[in-house]
Amino acid sequence: MKAASVLAPPVISDADFQKFAEFFHRKTGIHFEPAKRYFVDKRLVERIQASGAENFRAWFVALRFETDGAEMQRLVNLMTVNETYFFREAYQFDCLVNNMLDEIAARKRPGSRIRIWSIPSSTGEEPYSIAIYLLERWAKIEQYDVEILSSDIDTAVLQAAQRGVYSARSVGQLPKPYLKKYFTPHGNDEWRISRDLVDAVEFSRVNLSDAADTRRFRDIDVIFCRNLLIYFDDLSRRVAAEAMFDALAPGGFMCLGHSESMSRMSSLYTMRRFPDALVYQRPL
């Protein structure tokens, strides 16, 4: 008998949605408005059916009491959109060139080093966006040696980042003058980034949860760690936040994704509210 295959899909009641939304917000910091109801319900039904649970309640209780976090991880992956492109969440790059770097530079002598770490590098869009922003929009770039480090746990994406070939969608948010200046057409509807930019970024494989990997990173002035930690369990997130705290120089800044909150991971950082963005800082 294959009764399960003809069962009607589970129904998510208003109370179920509320219960789930509160739980998910507490665990991830991601808040779902009622307007997102369709998006959330569709994915909840998908997970309930895939898990074989009888209804929302049975699935939710199993989720609450699971010890390995596997179902929560699958849920997070489903509920987040994992894509990247040049100038994504550019308000933080604005904050970098309008506020953070000036504050850091004020504590250093001209000619000294400023170090920025982008993790995860994914296929390179973020570290290269940072490089372009610095070159185009930070007036003091010639006065300092800026190093951009970029890391990922996935060696395949690191290779892709160093290859530097991107789809039209990936470069779609770039201002046209920048596209023309830093990219050349490549094959069919693709773009190859300038070798100068590729050569300006130091790529490395790093597992943020491994102290042996992260201990090499010190005296970082700005860390971009966006839309990564939401995929971690609570303890791993906290361990990563602590490792990055030690990687930062005192006064260094940390940028998280728009749906992430450091206050849910660690109390080590102070919050800084700049005109363009809210960021976190290792106290001086």
Binding site: R113, L135, V146, E147, D196, A200, F217, R218
Partner: peptide, 14 residues
């Protein structure tokens, strides 16, 4: 450009 790739050992502390 003043982007500098660190090739010295000071970037990643030994």
């Amino acid at each position: 450009m003043a982007l500098k790739k660190s090739t010295d050992t000071t970037t990643l502390r030994p």
